[in-house]
């Protein structure tokens, strides 16, 4: 999970390693993910999102499809 300066930099990184390019996430989307995962992490009752909750969080950001499905079996 890395930062990249541009889409072109992501493409070059993936091509050099023979990887498929994955969906890109903006800094604003990433902030929402960071808040959702971690804003209660130092508190007694914190917990990680469950799979259904993860799907809803991702979908709310427009991150949909098998890649973002925590229970997908499309990537065996």
């Amino acid at each position: 999970m890395l930062f990249f300066r541009s889409e072109e930099q992501v493409r070059e990184w993936c091509t050099a390693r023979g990887y498929s390019m994955r969906p890109l996430v903006s800094m604003d989307q990433l902030w929402t993910l960071a808040i959702t995962w971690y804003s209660t992490r130092l508190q007694e009752n914190s917990r990680r999102p469950k799979p259904d909750e993860m799907r809803a969080i991702f979908a709310g950001l427009g991150l949909v499809g098998d890649f973002w499905d925590p229970q997908s079996d499309s990537f065996e």
Partner: peptide, 23 residues
């Protein structure tokens, strides 16, 4: 990248995750 209570400053940088969520 500066981050305040409302989130990061405006930025065109991107986040890329290679591994699918299920993995």
């Amino acid at each position: 990248l500066e981050v305040d209570f409302e989130g990061p400053e405006p930025s065109a940088w991107l986040f890329h995750c290679l591994v699918p969520a299920a993995k």
